[in-house]
Amino acid sequence: MNQCNYTIKKILHFYYNGFRNMPGWGRKVWLIILIKLFIMFAILKIFFFQDFLYKTYQTDAQRTEHVLNQITNYPDNYDRHH
């Protein structure tokens, strides 16, 4: 158990030191990563990219029904042209 704790501490220390001693470009790209992830997950995903089928329908049966309608319910255009 002590060995395990020691290893975990060592790993955490490794990451802590790595981030602390990061060069200037590293800090800049981390800032960009955080801004990017915030825009993607806190704005785009929540306000613009909700899953259409899960938002619109309650059950899998309803979702299946919708998709079946979408892939089968169209006029026979080819017959009309020929």
């Binding site: 790209v29 981390w30 960009i32 990563i33 990017k36 992830l37 993607m40 785009l44 995903k45 613009f48 990219f49 909700q50 899953d51 259409f52 089928l53 899960y54 998709v67």
Partner: peptide, 19 residues
């Protein structure tokens, strides 16, 4: 670092635009 996770947006689009 700049490119990481940009592909996740494609997965967002699958669920929303290409359901």
């Amino acid at each position: 670092a700049i490119g990481v996770a940009t592909g996740i947006i494609l997965e967002f689009e699958f669920g929303t635009n290409w359901s």
